[in-house]
Design a binder for these strands. Sequence first.
DNA 1: AACTACGTCAACCGCATGGCC
DNA 2: TGGCCATGCGGTTGACGTAGT
Length: 344
Amino acid sequence: MHPRGGRERAAVRKGPWTAEEDEVLRQHVREHGPREWSSIRSKGLLPRTGKSCRLRWVNKLRPNLKTGCKFSAEEERVVIELQAQFGNKWARISTYLPGRTDNDVKNFWSTRQKRLARILRAPLSRRRPAAAKHSASASTASSSAAASHDHDQLLRAPKPEPLCQDQDQVLRLGTMIPFQETPMHHIGESSQEPPLAANQCGDSPFHGLLDPAPILQPPIGFAAMDTAAAGCSSSYGAAPEAHYPLSFLYAGDPAPMLDASSFIDAATLVHSGGVAYLEPKRELEPQQPPVGFFGLEGEDDDDYGHIVPARRGTPDVHFDDLAPEMFDFFELPPSPPPSPSTRH
DNA sequence: AACTACGTCAACCGCATGGCC
DNA sequence: TGGCCATGCGGTTGACGTAGT
């Protein structure tokens, strides 16, 4: 548009890469290593920017990438736990996942957040069919039969009352939908975003529970990890008993967001008939964290999308299996209030 | 068959950082 | 010390495929 300094350069090509371009890029890396990206264009090898070349190499051409391979349950768990620990430091998280790029992790997380947001945002009248559809579509990774079984059980369970009668107490789920990041992170991180958990949880019974804790060993020696998805189930054996049960419920938007205290005060997790659901609390039970509620675990590779294990001996529940009724008592505002302060 | 919703993924953009001169 | 440049990172967008209606 506005060439600086009067320097004219050949037109930069954008868009999908061709096989020929890939081969040129591979050849460049063979000769020079994965650097000097800008020289690719300056030498006239490719009409691509250095950034574009680097991105193509890192995300697609680099050896040992797990392209086209869905995240295993173990990988999913690692991402979730590391995201809780580090925040949206995708490059850092990806170092714990051999064969995965930061883009992979980022896309995985984004997809997951969108799915959660959609479920929570969907009006009641649409949630049932939507969830049924979703359950069907997710059945490639989890058992739709089990899902319907859980749904049936949940439907038979007594429906909890609305979470809060007082509008001021209503959870502002609409504003927390983006789920850009969880608040419990920043160990040794100089994050641009203020951590939320400590402030927002306040003296809630979750305070402390949400505190970050060292979870995974540093990515030293990936030999045990660098396997096909099916083979890495115990690679993080040292991992974590620590869980962040509400991590996905928190939003990155630091503004009003979730009033965690009211949420925590208002509801508790109930397991009944193998199904977990929220129930309004009449009295606060300060020392009773909802262990297992939306915690994240995976037992095997069939557990994709599996995020609601019930701890303490209760059966696991898949997120994909969650009945939409679980969210019925969240009174969603008609439209989330904009939070311009959070955008730059 | 057409439409819609959703999931996935590649690629771009803007900004930050660090090295070099 | 400040400017330039290369590189890295996180956020966002859009294309495409698939499944449901």
